[in-house]
């Protein structure tokens, strides 16, 4: 059984429609790269899965349970429930808690009581993925640099025992070297029977690291990028 199955997803904000009737299936143990230019719907697709778009339509089946459906208002009202059912999102712009310490930020990711009890172990495993965070635990998250904030945001997502990890633009706004390290670390995480979707503009960062790559263009999923790199929207051309 596939872990996530999207059928006929349309979504947008107000009169604007961003996603056009797209289908996507993610298998267990799969690391999926989602590439495409700015404004072609990558972020919206990830937001749609957790119910953060203005309106949406279409079926989203996560582990055999329907979490999508038609919705025209109540942005984010279902999000906590969806997140609790096992989908962790590291959103664009990080959305970390600036007044809390890095430790508290990470702990806040462990929202189920089981993961809360084992939060120390989880924190340690996040630190093995992102070693720089180890020294920053006591520091307030508002004072971190861009790369560190991104690590906190992704680390917070890793603190949960989710089945599906959604990472939005891990390289956005970071120096190439830092983003390289970050993505490399992301791609080495053991996801077991879960799955991970990484949305990314920078194609070479993901090449060879993910199991499957899809291109997004104008709100639709294009061919597998592996077969038809030339078909991928200008991003590919721009990057090479």
């Amino acid at each position: 059984m596939s872990i996530l199955k999207l059928t006929g997803i349309s979504a947008g904000y107000g009169p604007m429609r961003v996603l056009h009737d797209l289908d996507l299936t993610v298998e267990p143990g799969e690391r999926l790269g989602l590439v495409g230019l700015n404004g072609h719907g990558k972020t919206t697709l990830l937001s749609t899965i957790v119910g953060l778009t203005g309106w949406q339509d279409g079926s989203i089946i996560f582990e055999g349970k329907e979490i999508g459906g038609r919705r025209t208002h109540g942005v984010g009202r279902k999000t906590p429930g969806i997140v609790r059912s096992g989908i962790a999102l590291a959103p664009q712009g990080d959305a970390i808690f600036p007044g809390l310490s890095v430790k508290d930020n990470l702990d806040s990711g462990a929202y189920t009581s089981a993961s809360w009890r084992s939060r120390k172990r989880r924190r340690d495993s996040v630190i093995t993925v992102f070693p720089p965070l180890g020294k920053l635990l006591k520091q307030s998250a508002g004072t971190l640099s861009g790369g560190e904030r991104r690590m906190v945001s992704v680390g917070r997502a890793l603190m949960s025992d989710s089945k599906l990890y959604l990472v939005d633009e891990p390289s956005l706004g970071l120096a190439p070297k830092i983003s390289m390290g970050l993505v490399a670390a992301l791609c080495e995480i053991d996801i077991g029977e879960g799955a991970m979707i990484i949305a990314e503009q920078n194609l070479p960062l993901l090449e060879g690291r993910v199991d499957r790559m899809l291109g997004m263009h104008a709100g639709e999923i294009k061919l597998d990028v592996g077969e038809a790199l030339g078909d991928v929207p200008p991003s590919a051309g721009g990057m090479h």
């Binding site: 984010g76 959305a95 970390i96 808690f97 600036p98 007044g99 806040s108 917070r156």
Partner: peptide, 16 residues
């Protein structure tokens, strides 16, 4: 406390 800081972040970590 998380909700005080950033409502979007709170929603993303499962805080209703």
């Amino acid at each position: 406390r998380a909700m005080m800081m950033n409502p979007l972040g709170a929603a993303v970590v499962g805080v209703s």
